[in-house]
Structures are given as structure tokens and as C-alpha cells.
Design a protein around this nucleic acid. Structure first.
Length: 828
DNA sequence: TGTAGGTTTAAAT
DNA sequence: TAAACCTACA
């Protein structure tokens, strides 16, 4: 819950930031936030008790990103429930129960989709789920700690004692606990919103001499927090007003009189409320946390004179120190209090431990006896050292857009639009039309060479990425086996680069299923007890072995426990059998089934496509073919009556430079578009622009936000960076001319020149089918197509000789960058 | 009109 | 969990 409306209230001091700014720092993370979001994708499986690793995978994507940016993550997990939060927990439990019952009811009525929604609302992060994530983290040498009570207080302590310089969470309460720097809403690229404690006074608009952090905390408690509900009619606005004006230092007196004194309200403040206020305040100050360095339980802040743990049972009851240690290590199930793991940091050998330089003691595990916190003086970003002025300079900043290229041999095969069009057609034919499709022939007729494409890129995709194929891999082993069966002899004959270990440039991005294609050793990184249970991945069909483990089966089991549900299920089955029949016939048409492949159990509607680089939910496709922003609901009139075909074209227009030989081209169907900005929507382009402005002024490294299509630069890095060139007017002219020459041929005269931005979205495609019909089928087929050809830009590698977009940036006296233009030039 | 509070929606894939 | 949206009230 946190403090309702606190984050919007602090909007004034929101700073868009990328975590890369804090390179070298230790960052403590509220693991529950990630787990909760990760669990959302597999809520159904979790609710039905089916094993899944999707939430671990989701969290590890964040962990990997942080490691890549040279940050040391420490994951903090929630521990026991605080006595003062019992009511909150109780109501949450009740809500979950209600949703469970609702889900069962909906299943009875045959409403599967709605039942699924309810199951998503039942998500509860169990200690086992936390343990699975902890195991995955430790296998990557990432520290974890379970708080004795709330993760919030533990995070604040890690910040306070110098272990962590930065906190990542979604919970605004962290600010009340006194964290210096908190990043909210961080995405998978590290972009988020930074709020610093030192700027809270700006929001409260209190003269600097009168502001204290205490007042901020009081304001939040008064407006209502987890530990104390607010008085009727008091929210953040009025609470802020009180502490903006308050000069009364005696808290009890102030609370008693604030409605009449500061708000002109006749509101009685009961004594119980004042007691509750003081308890809440003490909970924020003295909640029990675990000190991993001293290995002991302690209050977040040292007790004031006359206070002790016994007087503050609501802030957490003391445990025996040994039990507290085992809880902190994650060895004790906090629900049952039974031991369910046996992690011992004194005997555990973290990976790559030997490579750590002895002087980098802060990089050791926090459980290592030699661990030392990093002196603040070493931390540039934490000290807020001002950056050098860039006023008057103009720079070209390379976009951090990297183009995945096939190996050199493939460069010869640069395809014209017509060729691409043919390829597209062929690709379609392979998958849909011919009953004796290559795939089927390959499996049944002894892997003839012509079935495998000659290009290593295509081979790789045939073997690893074809969606119709991927669905038939059961486990990771099967996926590997599939590759081994097909690739070693024949594939290597054609190209040495396609083997068990695909060429570097072809390795799948994190958006894709990296488990399935990387080496055994690397896959072990995230495995959860692989020897004991099959680790499944969301990119594979869940029930290839048969129906035993399928979600369908589990649903049936779930419902069978409620006999009255059967009727609904029967009705459902009838409907689905019909659908399955059509599915099987489609599968046969696709040539995907064979004696080694069981029928595809994945329903077309629920089929998971391989990772796509698009945010489908951003746009909605209405029946009248308008492109609307799902958030604003505004319609970009330029797109009225532009059908999905042209939307596809739009996409390829914007992506035309980075798609490889698989680009489906439908030049003949292309309709003119104005610019890439227009491909999203007007709102979006505006927000992108402002985001760029904001981000450029704050961030400290060049990074790309896929979400907003914005790039951030490290201002301090600019003068030294090889990526930046100070330019003259002639140079601008040159690049403009290059830009014009290298523009995609599809771009019509109506398109405005040289203002292309890299953020590209496939617009006009509906994620949610709202009915059956040809347009929806078309949508689905286009989506499948996209999934097949899409690459994650972020992971793509840039090669010399490649076209590259650059951004011309100039600076104001206050170091604010202004984007002048985005141009294209050849990379030397 | 501003504020508070309740309800709905999105999140992931 | 929080933002967005809507409604009621002072």
C-alpha cells in the first residue's frame, strides 16, 4: 500500500535516470517487487501448483542487467509479518481468497479468461518462490538477504550502514525509512525515476531552515500509511499544509490541535490516533533489521534514550540471534518457521570469487568475513560532484542503436526489396502452404542438406527460432538434442559457425529464451535444482510429454476438486475440442507434426510467441482501423483507414535498416507515412522528445530506453568519449547529404526529411482479440510474423561500414542539451 | 474548485 | 502496487 499518492506528490523531484549512472555502486533491491511482476506472467501455473521458473527468469533479467552495468545487486526479501501490519496482511489474504473463489466460479461458468484474471489477483509470493530466486542469484554470485520483518526497513538499513548506495523498489515507503537515493519504476534497461531524500524539502515547500526529514515523515504518516489509517478528510495535501505551517515542536500538542490551527477544520483527534501516530513513527524509526556484517538483529536506528525493543513490540519482536541469522540467510520458511534450506556463506564458494581483486573488498559477498563497505569518498555519483559545463559545444552523439549483422559472408547477400519480398513469400510458403514442408521433410527424410538454409543466419533460425518449431521442444535438453541431431555434421559442413555454440552475433538476446540456446554451463546459471525437476521455459509448450503436466490438465484437476464445476468444464471442452481439431489440421498444414512430435497442445490463442521487441499493449487496433494510444485514447487521424497491412509496412519502413535478409517486404502495399514518429502516435513522439531532454540533462551514460525511444548521455563523459565529435557546419551539411542518400527507398516524398527517430513500433496491431474475423486472423498472422523476425535492438552488434543514426546535440548555459536533429551517417 | 476517497486497470508474455 | 479515473463533499 505505502503512502497513497506519495509518488505523484513528489513528481516535482522525479529525475529520469538510468542505473548505469551508479556504476560501481551497490544497489539493494526490493525483490518482492520483481517477484510479484514476474509471477504475473505465470499466475495461472502458480495458482494451480504447476512448477514454473518464469518468475525467476524475469527477475534474473534485471539482475543480469545490473551486473552488466557493473553494479553489485543485493536482493532483499520480506520476512515475517509485523504485528502492526497484521490487519493489512489479513485483508490481503481475504482478497486473495475471494479471488480464488471467484476464479472457481468463473471456471464453473466456463469463463476461462476471466478466471485467469482472478487467478492473477491471487498471486502470493511464497517462501519457496523466494528461495528459488535466491538460489539462482547465488549461482551468479549475487547476494541475498531476508529481512527479519519488512524488506523496506532492511533496504533502508543497507543504505544507512553504507552497504548499498542505491535502492530499487516500487514502494514509496522506502523514502519514509530514510533512504538517500531510491529508484522507482525501473525497467529492464535500467531506466527509472530517481528520488533523493535531499530534495524532499522542495516538495514540501518549507524554507530550508525549517525543513527536517522528520516533518516529511510526519506528513506521510498523517496522510495515512501502512501502520496508521488517516483521519477522515486528511490526505497528502492537507498533511503537507500542516507541516508546512507548523512551528510546534511538541508532536502530541501539534496532533491534537492541527485541524483547527492549520486547516480551519473542526475535526476531533482522538487520543488513540495520537498513540497510533507515535507507534507508526517508531515503526519507521526502530523496526528490527538484520546487520549482515555484525550478523545480529538490531533496530534500523539506534534507540533513543529510554527506549528498548521490549517497549516496541509492534516494530518487531526479537528472535534468538541464531534464528535471526538463519532467517536472514533464507534457510527458514518464514510462514512455517521450519528449516527448508541450508545455505552457509562460510562454506559457499561464489562463482568467480577468485577473480575479485583483494583490494575490492566491497565487491565481496556481504556475508564474507573480509567484506568492507566502500568509502563514500570513492563514489562520485553519490557525492553529487558537479559536471563540467558544455555550454556552446555541439556534439554528435552516437545512438546506442546497434545493428545485428550476419557474418561477413552474409554481407554479400544484401537483399533488394524484391528479393526480400520473395524471401518473405518463401518463408510463408514453408510454414503454411506446403503439406510436405521442409520441416517435415527434414525430420522424416534424413535431413537433406537443401532443407537447411545456406546462410548461417537462416540456419540458426531454422534450428532455434522458428516459432512453430520451438513449440515442440519439451525441455532444454530436447532443444539441445534437436540441435545436436540436426546440426553437427551437416550444418558444420556448410558453415563452421553454426554448431552447438552459435556465432556471437546470433546468440539470442535476453528477450529470447537464452536458456534454450546457450551452452549447458551458461544455462546452469539460472537453473533451479535442475537435477531434481525439469526447468521449463515459457517459450516452450508446457505439455509436450502429453497432457500430464499441462495447464489444461491442472485446470481440470483444480476444477474437479469442485465437482459442481464439471458442467462448465464440459461445455468448455466441447468448444475447445472444436478449436483443437482446427488447430491440429492447421498443424498438419504447417507440416509441424511428425512421428517425433506430438500434436501441438498450445492453443492458437494462448500460443506464446518468441520474445518480441515490441510493446503490443501500447497500441490498440480498433475495428475502424484507427490507431489509438491505449493510454490516451487519442486517435492519430493520419492513420484513419490505414489497415494492418500498411501498419506492417510502417514498421518495416522504420526498421528497414536493421532487418536482415529475412525482412518481408511488401513494397507494393506500402502506403506513405510521414515519419517514424508518426508510426507511434503524436503523443508518444512529444513525450519522447521531452523525455530525451530531461534524461540528457541528468543521466551519466549513453543508454537507450526502449520504452520511450529516448537516449541518455553521460555529460561528464562527453569531452573524453571517442563516440562524440565536435562538428562544424560543413560536417552537418555532409551528414545531411549522407542521410538523404541512405534513406530507405520506400520513404515517399511526403515524408519529412531527416527527423527519424529510432523508436519504432508496430502500430495498429491488437493484442487482444475482440472477436473473430478475417482482420483478427490477419492481425495474428502479422504478429506471428513479427515475432519471427523481430530482434531485440539492445543486443544487436554494430559493425563497421554500417549506417548509423547520430543525434546532433547542443548545450545551453545550464548544460541542458537540445537535440537539433537526428541524422544518419556511415560508421567508419 | 480543490481535495479526499473509492473503484478500476495495468503489470508479464 | 500504483496510477488513472470517477464521485462526493466542503
Amino acid at each position: 500500500m505505502g503512502v497513497t499518492g506519495l509518488l505523484p506528490f513528489l513528481k516535482k523531484i522525479h529525475v529520469p535516470v538510468n542505473v548505469a549512472k551508479f556504476e560501481g555502486c551497490t544497489v539493494a533491491i526490493d525483490a518482492y517487487c520483481w517477484l510479484h511482476k514476474g509471477a504475473f506472467s505465470c499466475a495461472e501455473k502458480l495458482a494451480l501448483g504447476e512448477p514454473t521458473d518464469q518468475y525467476v527468469y524475469y527477475c534474473m533479467k534485471y539482475v543480469e542487467m545490473l551486473l552488466k552495468k557493473n553494479l553489485k545487486p543485493v536482493l532483499v526479501f520480506d520476512g515475517c509479518h509485523l504485528p502492526s501490519k497484521k490487519d493489512v496482511e489479513k485483508s490481503r489474504r481475504e482478497k486473495r481468497e475471494i479471488n480464488k473463489k471467484k476464479a472457481a466460479q468463473l471456471l464453473r461458468e466456463g469463463k476461462r479468461a476471466e478466471a485467469r484474471e482472478c487467478l492473477q489477483r491471487c498471486i502470493d509470493i511464497s517462501p519457496d518462490m523466494a528461495l528459488n530466486l535466491m538460489n539462482a542469484c547465488r549461482a551468479r554470485g549475487v547476494d541475498c538477504i531476508v529481512a527479519p520483518y519488512e524488506a523496506d526497513a532492511q533496504l533502508a538499513y543497507l543504505n544507512k550502514c553504507g552497504i548499498a548506495q542505491l535502492i530499487i523498489t516500487e514502494d514509496s515507503d522506502l523514502l519514509l525509512f530514510g533512504c538517500d537515493k531510491v529508484i522507482f519504476k525501473m525497467d529492464h534497461f535500467g531506466n527509472g525515476v530517481l528520488i533523493e531524500q535531499s530534495r524532499l524539502n522542495e516538495v514540501m515547500e518549507i524554507q530550508s531552515g525549517f525543513y527536517t526529514f522528520e516533518k516529511f515523515r510526519y506528513m506521510c504518516i498523517l496522510s495515512g500509511c501502512d501502520y496508521l489509517s488517516s483521519l477522515q478528510g486528511i490526505g497528502l495535501g492537507k498533511a503537507a499544509k500542516v507541516f508546512k505551517r507548523a512551528r510546534q515542536s511538541e508532536l502530541k500538542l501539534l496532533l491534537k490541535k492541527f485541524p483547527s490551527t492549520y486547516l480551519n477544520m473542526s475535526l476531533a483527534v482522538p487520543d488513540e490516533y495520537i498513540d497510533g501516530f507515535i507507534r507508526a513513527n517508531n515503526t519507521f524509526l526502530y523496526q528490527l533489521v538484520y546487520d549482515p556484517l555484525q550478523r545480529r538483529l538490531r533496530p534500523l536506528n539506534s534507540y533513543e534514550e529510554g527506549l528498548n525493543a521490549q517497549q516496541l513490540p509492534y516494530a518487531g519482536a526479537m528472535f534468538p540471534q541464531d534464528e535471526a541469522y538463519q532467517i536472514a540467510l533464507g534457510n527458514i520458511n518464514i510462514y512455517t518457521r521450519g528449516k527448508f534450506a541450508d545455505f552457509d556463506p562460510d562454506t559457499f564458494v561464489p562463482p568467480k570469487a577468485s577473480k575479485k581483486r583483494p583490494e575490492q573488498l566491497h565487491r565481496l559477498s556481504i556475508w564474507d568475513r573480509n567484506y568492507r563497505t566502500r568509502p563514500k569518498t570513492e563514489l562520485r555519483e553519490v557525492q553529487n560532484i558537479p559536471r563540467p559545463s558544455l555550454h556552446g559545444k555541439e556534439v554528435i552523439v552516437k545512438k546506442n542503436f546497434q545493428v545485428k549483422r550476419p557474418p561477413a559472408e552474409d554481407d554479400k547477400n544484401v537483399k533488394s526489396d524484391n528479393e526480400l519480398s520473395k524471401l518473405y513469400q518463401e518463408e510463408n510458403d514453408e510454414n503454411s502452404s506446403s503439406p510436405s514442408s521442409p520441416k517435415k521433410r527434414r525430420r522424416s527424410s534424413g535431413d537433406s542438406e537443401e532443407d537447411l538454409p545456406k546462410s548461417p543466419v537462416k540456419k540458426f533460425r531454422k534450428l532455434y527460432m522458428s516459432p512453430s518449431k520451438v513449440q515442440f521442444f519439451d525441455s532444454l535438453k530436447d532443444a539441445d538434442q534437436e540441435v545436436c541431431d540436426q546440426s553437427p555434421s551437416k550444418v558444420q559442413d556448410q558453415s563452421e559457425q553454426v554448431s552447438e555454440s552459435p556465432p556471437e552475433c546470433l546468440k539470442p538476446s535476453p528477450k529470447r529464451n537464452r536458456f534454450a540456446v546457450l551452452s549447458e554451463e551458461k544455462r546452469e546459471k539460472f537453473s533451479i535444482n535442475t537435477s531434481k525437476s525439469i526447468v521449463r521455459s515459457r517459450f516452450f509448450a508446457s505439455s509436450v510429454e502429453g497432457s500430464e503436466n499441462s495447464t489444461e490438465k491442472k485446470l481440470e484437476e483444480y476444477v474437479s476438486k469442485n465437482p459442481e464445476v464439471d458442467k462448465g468444464i464440459e461445455r468448455n471442452k466441447e468448444k475447445e475440442e472444436k478449436l483443437d481439431e482446427s488447430k491440429i489440421s492447421t498443424s498438419n498444414e504447417l507440416g509441424s507434426t511428425s512421428e517425433t512430435s506430438p500434436p501441438n497442445p498450445v492453443h492458437p490463442k494462448t500460443k506464446s510467441s518468441p520474445g518480441s521487441a515490441f510493446t503490443w499493449s501500447k497500441f490498440k487496433y480498433s475495428k475502424t482501423s484507427n490507431v489509438t494510444s491505449s493510454k490516451t485514447g487519442k486517435v492519430n487521424s493520419d492513420y484513419k483507414k490505414v489497415g494492418s497491412e500498411s501498419c506492417l509496412s510502417n514498421y518495416f519502413l522504420s526498421k528497414s535498416r536493421d532487418v536482415d535478409s529475412f525482412v518481408p517486404s511488401s513494397t507494393s502495399q506500402l502506403k506513405p507515412v510521414k515519419s517514424c514518429d508518426d508510426i507511434g502516435d503524436v503523443e508518444d513522439s512529444v513525450s519522447q522528445s521531452s523525455y530525451v531532454q530531461e534524461t540528457l540533462s541528468q543521466a551519466s551514460s549513453v543508454s537507450y530506453s526502449q520504452e520511450s525511444g529516448a537516449y541518455s548521455i553521460d555529460l561528464e563523459c562527453l569531452p573524453d568519449s571517442q563516440e562524440i565529435q565536435t562538428i562544424s557546419e560543413e560536417y552537418v551539411a555532409q551528414t545531411e547529404s549522407v542521410s538523404r542518400q541512405t534513406k530507405p527507398i520506400q520513404e515517399s516524398k511526403k515524408n519529412p526529411p531527416a527527423t527519424k527517430k529510432l523508436g519504432c513500433r508496430a502500430s495498429g496491431l491488437s493484442k487482444n482479440k475482440k472477436g473473430k474475423g478475417s482482420s483478427d486472423d490477419k492481425q495474428q498472422s502479422i504478429k506471428d510474423l513479427f515475432s519471427k523476425f523481430a530482434f531485440n535492438k539492445r543486443e544487436e552488434k554494430l559493425c563497421p561500414g554500417e549506417d548509423q543514426d547520430v543525434e546532433l546535440v547542443s548545450f545551453t548555459p545550464s548544460n541542458k542539451p537540445c537535440t537539433k536533429a537526428v541524422q544518419r551517417k556511415l560508421l567508419p
